[in-house]
Design a binder for these strands. Structure first.
Lengths: 339, 339
DNA sequence: GTATCAACCGTGAGCGCTAACATTTCCTGG
DNA sequence: CCAGGAAATGTTAGCGCTCACGGTTGATAC
């Protein structure tokens, strides 16, 4: 009810005004060749005059080049996903693509139909930011249904299958966590505890592997929610235990929660306890003490994912990877255990 | 190239399989009445059987009920916008709407055509998260072009015009900042300094008004960027000045930057310096010391914005506002000035 | 038995655009 | 001066769906 004003101007209105056929107008708005310069100018004038804007629905319906991406993700307000989304958005809008987002609930399981039904149409291009079970599942469904029009970021067992580079922008969570854990071990800690985000994630695997490498039985994982508060609560017992000297956290937010809990428990950082995060969110450097963490270039990953998708869609030269590789950033929350 | 598999199944394929007309299928997928239960079941079976999924482009083209919203915002990775977007997404996807995002660059100015051209079609529903100049401008353009299909969150001069409640979910930045400044003044501070986010924003106005109320000439505003780092840098001089006893920050992130700068300058909080933020981001409560700030229910605002838009689109009962009103949260970074 | 009116279902048109092909125009060479 | 061909433009069909009708059935009323 009562949407726009009069009626939108269509390609025919422009054609009439410019004294050409609608097809010529179509050619102009698509920058197609085979249009005389004078005609082109006349059409452009008519477009400006009437305030014409092409209807995207009609365009995709008619089978023109697709100019939209659907992004599947969970919780756009987390640092990692927000940054990745931002990277995709940057690249996509620069290329004239529309970005649709579809937020998946990690608590829920989705059928093939649920996922595919969120696309604007069958075969619509999609990017999956896959860092947990639900989104990884979505990626699997989409790849099965339309391998030509989907790429993903993230990491899972199948990433190592041959040809994964064609559709995956790998941000190897496993290796990242492994490296961080090794670093802690190298500082002399007897073992490293792990505070986990909800859902089974690859970072936890990396942590366990690093311990296994040196023959340490991984201690029981402590489960946290997604928020800083839940981490503080979940870690309360852990930080109170004087036997615990090092904690690796699923991400920076959880690490901040642990730091807070440790502060309340009166434990000194890093003397009594080393804490390490993951992501290098902007806060990490400005927290006091500065958080040791792993720098992850989510925005670059998002950009690359879009470029990869576009390459699959439109061909052209292979886009070379353009994101910073993960790097351990040692700050002030980590060090050797006391004595 | 090489998008989907064979060819997508259309409404006609389903019709044929179920032995009905395409229109009956249309009725079923739109939950329209006037379809016999047995027929409905048969059609649903055919839909499941063939894996049919309606094409959204075709639907909107054909003039059916609109089922998408375009969200205009800037920088989806900032706390406030990310949360608002999340709220919109929650409500929208629950209502079966698709969410499109369109990120505007605050550095850029957009023409009417730029903004309107980002809609999927003329008159497409839109929500503007308007907390700065660029997005406020976008809101103005959209309201002029299609008043029936746009709502906004945020605050600006025109919010006070009669009937604004029909299209605005007000998060009164001005009043919020005013209240926070008054609180600081009430603690006995001679004046309050302001660290500003880029662009002219309403929070700054509120701060200035609170000072003016008690006859204080507002000190020069210190400009910061959007990041914590830029805030730390921008505030370096300010925090080093022993005459400065209270700083109000554009948002929590900037406050964290100030806190960091103050720490480096060796000033004690809140003894030497009171710092107050705005947003009550999750970190605020877990920072050490806890950040005094104003709780802003962005997610609730986002949800309400969507409900309001939906009301405009489809009629129905007036949605009553359902977000928490802003509230000052006093923690440990604020107090009376020393002596 | 026939008029009446629901309830149910089908037919045709058209949304705004692009693809594919048909047609016209204009310039070239011999 | 006209064949030949490229450049420029026009024509037709159809993407998948919904809207606005028109038709058909079957129960009820008289």
């Amino acid at each position: 009810m009562s949407a726009a004003g009069p009626k939108p101007v269509s390609i025919f209105d422009v054609a009439k005004q410019a004294g050409v056929s609608h097809q010529t107008v179509s050619r102009v708005i698509n920058d197609a060749p085979m249009v005389a310069d004078t005609t082109r100018a006349r059409v452009k004038a008519a477009i400006a005059d009437l305030g014409y804007r092409p209807n995207r629905s009609a365009r995709t319906l008619a089978g023109g080049a697709v100019r939209s991406v659907t992004v599947f993700t969970f919780d756009t307000s987390l640092y990692g996903t927000a940054e990745t989304l931002r990277g995709i958005e940057d690249a996509a809008s620069a290329a004239g693509f529309t970005v649709l987002i579809s937020v998946l609930d990690p608590e829920q399981t989705y059928t093939d139909g649920d996922i595919l039904g969120r696309l604007s149409h069958d075969g619509a291009p999609a990017i999956v930011i896959a860092h947990d079970e639900t989104t990884t599942q979505a990626r699997r469904i989409l790849r099965k249904a339309q391998p030509g029009a989907v790429v993903a970021t993230g990491d899972d067992q199948l990433s190592r299958e041959p040809g994964a580079a064609d559709w995956l922008v790998p941000l190897d969570d496993r290796v990242v966590a492994k490296r961080a854990t090794r670093y802690l071990l190298s500082m002399g800690h007897r073992t490293v505890h792990y505070l986990a985000m909800p859902g089974k994630a690859r970072r936890q695997d990396g942590w366990a592997e690093a311990l296994a490498e040196v023959g340490i039985e991984p201690p029981e994982v402590v489960q946290s929610g997604w928020t800083i508060g839940s981490a503080a609560e979940a870690a309360a017992e852990l930080v109170a235990d004087p036997g615990v000297t090092a904690i690796m956290c699923g991400n920076d937010d959880l690490a901040f929660g642990v730091l807070h809990a440790a502060h309340r428990a009166g434990r000194s950082i890093p003397g009594d306890l080393s804490v390490i995060g993951c992501d290098d969110s902007p806060m990490a450097a400005y927290h006091v003490p500065g958080l040791t963490t792993v720098d992850l270039d989510f925005r670059g990953v998002g950009r690359s994912a879009f470029e990869l998708l576009r390459h699959k869609l439109e061909g052209g030269p292979d886009p070379r990877p353009s994101w910073r590789s993960p790097e351990l950033v040692v700050r002030e929350t980590s060090g050797p255990p006391r004595q």
